[in-house]
Design a protein around this nucleic acid. Structure first.
Lengths: 207, 207
DNA sequence: TAGATTGTTAATCGATTAACAATC
DNA sequence: TAGATTGTTAATCGATTAACAATC
């Protein structure tokens, strides 16, 4: 599609996806924008508008078929693509993410782990061995990994981003609190914990 | 202040804060909106507009004094308040956050850890003992903790949110992928990893 | 058919950008 | 003074909301 879709709309879509999944598990076969609204705290109009950006998925006078809409949104978000993921930096946070069950739940397959510390290289997290970051390019290519997760210290993050770029990943999920510079064709999402905590601090301070 | 400030503006403020801190460390004494813009990828006008929401912090023809602006933004964001923080759920993610050095760096003091698993209760993370979640209310009150971090499984998150509410915290930082219901006076920030990963998936899928 | 609910066009609202006066 | 840069008012742009026609 040519039209530019706002980041906010995509975020909402990801939330619709989540609640549709739980609705599906509850056995809800047909769902209205009103009901999606109740479960997500968005207005029904906003939901219909968001969906309309990508096509007509509902039935007038009826609502949306849960299975169908879930599948359509999954396709839009690319969650049916089984992306292969590598984590670089198996410290506390990287290790926690390696154990994160929601990767698999949402169509992501953890396929490689990297560290530079000889003490951890060779050990395993759930049957997946931690490799030497020196072999990053080779392994990323061999295993056709498309997403790199950066959980190394701030000072090393740009270097790892460069390695990942060189290895040909399509996207980077960055947990280091720093602005990474990557080529335009590589998509970067920053998970900025310090920023979100600052926001909480702001809201608490106000009253 | 009475005016409602957009969430986006506060997020940018948190980023200005970060780059001002590194500018300060580099010994930059005076900084222009142009330079802040280069370091954050926002336009100079936007930066001046954001700052203008809270007052006049600069000097015409000169720029901003780094120390002064850093301090002012810190005050706005409440980062000079030394918030006391508790983490509930010391699994992989909670444990990683307990080791997260940026808490201290940004004016947050980790003051209590809770879990319900007897196997971990009593053990320590950096001199801080893990307490039984049964004692949550008592300890939160005793230690005057204002922020609770929820890193328990999804199914238990609402229960913990209720406990925290009852104990009188002012803010909740939620890592469970679920919509929590809390009273209006309690500020909630969701750290939605699955959502952000979905966004990355969307951007990769597009090309 | 009547009721319900989607999808879309038009109106409103809010945020960003442009222009520029103020002033160091 | 001339050059630089802030702070603010006005213009533009984009996103949300309201209204309603379409139709199951």
């Amino acid at each position: 599609m040519k039209q530019i879709i706002s980041k906010a709309a995509i975020e909402r879509l990801a939330l619709y996806f989540r609640i549709l999944k739980s609705a599906q598990e509850e056995g809800v076969e047909i769902i209205s924008s009103e009901e999606i609204g109740k479960r997500t705290d968005f207005t029904p109009v906003q939901i219909r508008k968001d969906l309309a950006l990508f096509g007509q998925f509902g039935m007038k006078g009826v609502g949306y078929f849960t299975n169908d809409l879930l599948n359509k949104i999954g396709n839009i978000l690319g969650l049916n693509n089984h992306w292969k993921v590598a984590i670089i930096g198996i410290g506390h946070l990287g290790g926690a993410l390696a154990n994160y069950r929601n990767f698999a739940n949402n169509g992501f397959k953890l396929t490689a782990l990297f560290d530079k510390d000889e003490k951890v290289i060779g050990s395993k997290v759930h049957d997946l061995e931690i490799s030497d970051v020196k072999d990053l390019k080779k392994i990323i290519k061999e295993r056709e990994i498309q997403i790199g997760v950066i959980t190394v210290p701030e000072a090393e993050a740009q270097g790892v981003a460069n390695l990942l770029t060189d290895a040909g990943v399509k996207g980077i999920w960055n947990f280091a609190p720093t602005k990474l510079i990557v080529p335009n064709e590589i998509h970067l999402v920053n998970e900025d914990l310090a920023m979100d905590l600052s926001m909480l601090s702001y809201y608490i301070s106000k009253n």
